[in-house]
Each structure stands twice: as structure tokens, then as C-alpha cells.
């Protein structure tokens, strides 16, 4: 059984298991064409709800899933970041999607770092990937800041099988070597 009270804390952010109240922000993000540009386009409220359910269901069935990211300063839900591995996915992913008003502050890197630490410590993962569209330079920059490198062209399962995707990633050893170097 998962611990639904699981919470990770960083300097500016709280990462926790999604709650019902997060859906308003989740649905607003799904309506934002710019934020959804690399994620299959905008989502109706119904689609957003079903996607929200599936992400929460991942926590119950697999014991992990994307965290809701809350900004400490104002308590706002600003996005979803964390581990996911749906059926047919090309690897153990750490993914991130932030609401547009939270872009450009380094939140994605800050939250992803906490999520990667947790995934390696708690899930026994030996490597991580990030599936990123070839023209999504903002996410590529986050991947680089996390120490991940481009591994090649990938393919996602249906219904995303026609989306052009590159796979970025790193191993557990690379992650911990980099973490150790930074704390010296």
C-alpha cells in the first residue's frame, strides 16, 4: 500500500501525491495550447480528468507516479513532475510538465532533482529517461541541467506513437557521481 502522505521538500517547492483539489490547476494546464504544444495538444475537461485519474491510479497500482508540485510561497499547484512507466513505455521516466506561469524560475530542475533522488532511493531504478520532443528546447535544457544526455531517437506507445521523440537519460551511477561531486 502506498503512503499517500509522502511529501518531498525542496528550497521553494513541495512534491506530494496528487489530491482532488489539484485538478483545477491540472485542467487549466490542459487548456493551455502553448504548454500542451509538445504533449498532444489541448485537453477537454473530460480528457484532463481521465488523465488525472490515470496518474493517480499509477500511485495506487505501481506505488509511484507523478507528484503534484506546490510552490511554498503561495501554495499554488504549479505542475506535475516525477516517475512514470506506463505499459509499453521505453523506460523508467522522470517527466515534468509545468504551468506556464511557473516557467523560467528553475522549478522544473529543482523538483526533478528531488524526484530523481527519490526514484533511485525508493524504486530501485538503475537508470532514468526523459522523452522529449526534438524541438522542445526548454525541456532539453532541463535534461542537460540534470546531467542527462541525448541517447537517441525513441518511440512511444499508442496513442503517442506518431509523436517524434528523443530519449534523454542517465544511469544511477552517473546521477550519484554528479550529486557527490556537487556536495564536495
Amino acid at each position: 500500500m502506498i503512503d499517500t502522505g509522502l511529501t518531498l521538500e525542496t528550497g521553494r517547492l513541495i512534491l506530494r501525491v496528487p489530491q482532488r483539489a489539484d485538478f483545477e490547476g491540472w485542467a487549466r494546464l490542459g487548456r493551455d495550447a502553448e504548454a500542451m504544444r509538445h504533449l498532444g495538444g489541448t485537453k477537454s475537461a473530460f480528457e484532463a480528468w481521465r488523465h488525472f485519474l490515470a496518474n493517480v491510479g499509477s500511485w495506487r497500482i505501481l506505488g509511484f507516479g507523478p507528484f503534484s508540485v506546490i510552490r511554498k510561497a503561495d501554495g499554488q499547484w504549479i505542475g506535475r513532475i516525477g516517475p512514470l512507466h506506463p505499459e509499453g513505455w521505453p523506460g523508467d521516466e522522470i517527466g515534468w510538465t509545468l504551468a506556464r506561469e511557473a516557467w523560467g524560475c528553475g522549478y522544473a530542475t529543482e523538483a526533478a532533482t528531488a524526484a530523481i533522488d527519490w526514484a533511485f532511493a525508493s524504486l530501485g531504478w538503475t537508470s532514468i529517461i526523459h522523452c522529449i520532443a526534438p524541438d522542445n528546447t526548454a525541456s532539453q535544457a532541463v535534461a542537460k541541467r540534470l546531467g542527462s544526455t541525448l541517447q537517441g531517437v525513441g518511440r512511444l506507445p499508442v496513442p503517442h506513437d506518431q509523436d517524434p521523440i528523443e530519449i534523454w537519460g542517465q544511469t544511477r551511477e552517473e546521477w550519484f557521481a554528479r550529486r557527490a561531486a556537487r556536495t564536495v
Binding site: 499517500t4 496528487p18 489530491q19 482532488r20 485538478f23 481521465r50 488525472f52 485519474l53 490515470a54 496518474n55 493517480v56 491510479g57 499509477s58 500511485w59 495506487r60 497500482i61 506506463p86 505499459e87 509499453g88 513505455w89 506507445p157 499508442v158 496513442p159
Partner: peptide, 20 residues
């Protein structure tokens, strides 16, 4: 549905239990 699509739909049920 394909298996990957079925998986996403399957997760909606435990997700709804947790939220609702």
C-alpha cells in the same frame, strides 16, 4: 484498445477510488 491504451484506462479506476 491497444495494451498501452488499456493500461491508461485501467489506471483510471484505482485513480478514481483514491480521489473520489
Amino acid at each position: 484498445l491497444s495494451r498501452p491504451e488499456a493500461w491508461r484506462k485501467f489506471l483510471e479506476y484505482p485513480g478514481a477510488w483514491m480521489l473520489q
